[in-house]
Amino acid sequence: MYRIVSAIFLAENIKKFEIEAPRIAKKRRAGQFVMLRLSETGERFPLTIADSDPEKGTITIISQGAGKSTRALNRLEAGETITDVVGPLGTPSHIGNFGTSVSIGGGVGTAIAYPTAAALKAAGNYVITINGARTRELVILEEEMKAVSDEAYITTDDGSYGFNGFVTQKLQELIDSGRKIDFVLAIGPIPMMKAVAEVTRPYGIRTVVSLNPIMIDGTGMCGGCRVTVGDEIKFACVDGPEFDAHLVDFKNLADRNRIYQHEEKASDEAEAHRCRLAAQS
C-alpha cells in the first residue's frame, strides 16, 4: 500500500498526487514511469513520474481522468492509499548539453515534459518550453515550466491565453525566426507528437517523443507495449518510453492503442450505470 500525501486538481480532470514511495523517489530519473494498480481487481497502468523528493520519500504523478482507472485514481484524496506502485521503470531520458533545447508539452503531456525540461536546464541547455492546452483553464504547471525555462511560451487552441494556436505553430515560428534549435522533446497526444516530428524533420533537428502504448507488467515480460521504430520492434517499457520521433510509426501506435476501445466503452458504461444506481439510493 502506498499512501497519498497530497492530491490537488491542477485543472478540470487533471490531478496531481504526491505518493509515499521512498525507494522509487530515491532512484527515479527524468523520463521514467511507474505502474499503478488501485485495487485487487484493478488493472495495471503506467504514469510518468513528474517529480520526486528523495528527502521526503515521495514521488509526484499527474493524472488526467481518461479511462476507468485514471478516473478512479482522480477520485482518491490525501490520506488514502494506492494498492501497488512499481518503479521507476523505463530508460531515463538521455540528457546532455545539446545547446538550445525546446521542450513541448501538450495537455497533460506537460507533466511529462516538465521533469525532462528541468533536467535539460540542469545540464546547461538553453531551455525553451512550449506549454500547450486546448484552453486557458487546462494549462498546467505554468509556474514550474517557467522556473526551468530561459524562454517559456503558452499556447492555447482557442487563443484564450498566450499564443493563439497549436504548439507546432509556435515551434515553426521559432524555427522561421532563424533560431538555431538543437534538440526538441515533444510529449502529448499522438497527433501532436506526430505533427511536431513533421515540423522538425525537414531541418534534421533531433526530436524525441515519449510513447504511451498499452502496458501490462511494464517490466519487460509481456510484450504488450511493442512499438515500431524504424524497421524494428521496440518495447516501450524497457527500450523506451522515449524514442526518436522521426523513426516512430505513429499510426501503428494509434491503431494498437485502440484494441480495447469496445471493452473500454463497456467498462465506462458499467461505471456510469453504477454511478446512477448510487445516485438513486
Binding site: 488493472e43 501490462i216 515480460m221 509481456c222 510484450g223 504488450g224 511493442r226 520492434i233 501503428n252 485502440r258
Partner: peptide, 19 residues
Amino acid sequence: ENLIGVLAANEFLTRVNLM
C-alpha cells in the same frame, strides 16, 4: 505482425491468468 489483434502469448496469458 503489428496489426491490431496480433499479440504475444505472454500478453494474452498474463491478461487472463494474472489480471
